[in-house]
Simulated scan of single mutants.
Amino acid sequence: MPDFRYEYENGAPERFVAGLDEVGRGPIAGPVVAACVIFPHDLPLSLQSMIDDSKKLSPMRRLHAFQALTGGVCHFGVGAASVHEIETLNVGKASHLAMRRALKRLPFLPHVALVDGKARVDLPCEVRMIIKGDQSSLSIAAASIIAKVTRDQLMEKLARRYDAYGWERNAGYGTATHLQALKSVGVCRHHRRGFAPVSAMLAQAERLGA
């Protein structure tokens, strides 16, 4: 289970230490979403026990943790990068852009940002990269939960307008149902045209129309 080890190593609670994570690099549709979290030093144990890497939590447990986290127990910010920005910058740089936007939505700038992963991120504060940070840092794990639930809810809203793709179930990932819908319905403006299944579909359509 994640704990406050990395937060304490980087000066918490005397210094403000934020956890940062993003979701949505792999899908073929929808934005990348990032979140950052700063905890108080006296976080109740009951809440700590709810927090883990978002991928390890069931949808119901993840939602309960999200509701607790966004209910006033921590400072948090959320940022996103659009499909257009993913296509223009590439998904890695777009993810970093989403992180910077999330950081800007905090009420104050932290002294240190703990970031999940190993690819260095350019942020306006000290940065410490932590591989598998969502499994070891409570702040990063909390950020992963907020980012994941926020993005899932966004994809559910988009699914009401684009109901053929099953985004309320697959969150924009290239599942068999989603790929079949691409063949039967075609590509919409929320698809990432540079990603292989979508680009292949567009290339095939161009060949047939030539």
Results as ranks from 00 to 15, higher is better:
99 M>F: 14
91 V>P: 00
80 A>H: 09
93 K>T: 11
98 A>Q: 06
51 I>P: 11
57 L>C: 06
100 R>P: 01
55 K>T: 14
85 E>L: 11
62 R>V: 11
65 A>Y: 13
66 F>T: 05
76 F>T: 00
88 T>P: 00
82 S>R: 07
32 V>F: 02
82 S>A: 08
68 A>D: 01
94 A>K: 14
78 V>L: 02
46 S>W: 14
66 F>K: 12
66 F>N: 07
99 M>Q: 07
36 C>N: 02
62 R>G: 06
31 P>W: 05
50 M>T: 10
47 L>N: 05
56 K>A: 12
62 R>D: 02
58 S>I: 07
60 M>C: 08
64 H>M: 15
45 L>T: 10
58 S>Q: 05
61 R>V: 03
58 S>M: 05
59 P>N: 10
68 A>M: 05
78 V>R: 01
64 H>E: 11
87 E>N: 14
94 A>C: 01
97 L>N: 03
100 R>N: 09
74 C>R: 00
92 G>P: 01
59 P>K: 11
63 L>C: 00
61 R>E: 14
56 K>Q: 14
62 R>P: 11
44 P>V: 15
55 K>A: 09
84 H>S: 10
75 H>F: 07
97 L>A: 08
92 G>A: 10
41 H>G: 15
89 L>W: 07
71 G>K: 07
34 A>N: 03
79 G>K: 13
35 A>F: 13
83 V>E: 07
37 V>S: 00
85 E>P: 03
92 G>T: 12
90 N>Y: 03
76 F>R: 10
51 I>G: 06
56 K>L: 14
93 K>G: 00
85 E>N: 03
95 S>V: 09
31 P>Q: 12
87 E>Y: 01
94 A>E: 09
48 Q>F: 02
86 I>N: 04
42 D>V: 14
97 L>D: 04
69 L>E: 03
89 L>V: 02
33 V>R: 03
77 G>E: 06
73 V>I: 13
44 P>E: 13
57 L>E: 01
78 V>T: 04
40 P>Q: 13
75 H>D: 13
52 D>C: 05
97 L>K: 12
92 G>C: 00
53 D>C: 04
58 S>W: 10
36 C>F: 04
60 M>W: 10
95 S>W: 06
69 L>W: 04
88 T>F: 10
41 H>I: 02
46 S>F: 13
68 A>Q: 08
38 I>A: 08
